[in-house]
């Protein structure tokens, strides 16, 4: 699967240019956070990495090949859960993998324990709190043991303690060996968990750097303005 290479990728819905000439390489390890103003095309970029959206221009290659048959999982900004038990939802992504009944049950149970929802396995997924729903969505993706996990705003609209437990889970999934690419509006979160930052603006990758360097010494004016403009406001609100 790795490296994933995007070359001159464009996305122009209804003739409007959202992404234009994006070049990006995702290699095998770490947590990459995509930052950028609203409408920069962050979500669309995740969908392209998941193979859910074909680019309108340019190419995406997964280790030189087309979309791999398995190994990619995605958690959407507003995860939709089936009207059914927490346990059933957690194991949903395993159905197409045909692992066999015992292995499916074992993995589902194990993952629920790791996100701290094992005690709610029999409850209805749709009656969980916002933080629990997000953890369940992460469990559903995690149980699939993906090589690449894509997260779109995983803590939007969560309170600080729920945000903290989601971040803890994201780190654990990474130590489990999954490559993580995520978006967030929360710069504090990006500082806390990102290994490297992809800064997207005006439909292009403006800057890519290790997280520590990006926040300490942004190379471009756009990134500087973004960090200065957004940072105090976001911290005040989310953390």
């Amino acid at each position: 699967m790795f490296p994933i290479k995007l070359s001159q990728v464009g996305f122009t819905p209804d003739g409007r240019s959202v992404l234009a000439g994006v070049d990006l390489e995702i290699d095998v390890d770490g947590i990459t956070v995509i930052l950028g103003p609203n409408g920069a095309g962050k979500t669309i970029l995740l969908r392209m990495l998941a193979g859910l959206q074909a680019p309108h221009g340019g190419t995406i290659r997964w280790n030189g090949n087309g979309l791999p048959a398995a190994g990619i999982a995605m958690v959407f900004q507003h995860p939709v859960l089936l009207r059914s038990s927490v346990f059933h939802n957690a194991g949903l992504g395993l159905q197409p993998l045909a692992l066999g009944r015992a292995e499916t049950l074992r993995r589902t149970q194990h993952t629920l324990e790791r996100v701290g929802l094992a005690h709610r396995a029999a409850d209805s997924a749709r009656l969980l709190s916002g933080g629990e729903r997000q953890r369940l969505a992460l469990a559903r993706a995690w149980a699939m043991q993906p090589k690449l996990l894509l997260l779109d705003e995983p803590t939007a609209a969560l309170d600080p303690s729920a945000t903290e437990s989601v971040e803890r889970i994201i780190r654990e999934i990474r130590s489990d060996g999954a490559r993580i690419v995520m978006t967030t509006h929360n710069l504090g979160q990006a500082m806390r968990i990102a290994d490297d930052i992809v800064f997207l603006a005006s439909g292009r990758v403006i800057e890519r750097a290790p997280a520590s360097r990006f926040f300490a010494r942004p190379q471009t004016n756009e990134a500087k303005l973004f960090i200065q403009g957004e940072l105090p406001w976001r911290i005040a609100f989310d953390d």
Binding site: A50, L52, A69, A70, I72, A73, M74, F76, P79, V80, L82, R83, S84, L92, G93, Q95, P96, M144
Partner: peptide
């Protein structure tokens, strides 16, 4: 509602239909 989720989980047509029927039971 579910199209994104099911596609990202690479659900086959059969799995999609079974899961949707179950969800809407």
């Amino acid at each position: 509602e579910y199209a994104n989720e099911f596609r990202s989980m690479r659900f086959s047509l059969r799995h999609t239909i079974v899961s949707l029927l179950y969800d809407c039971r």
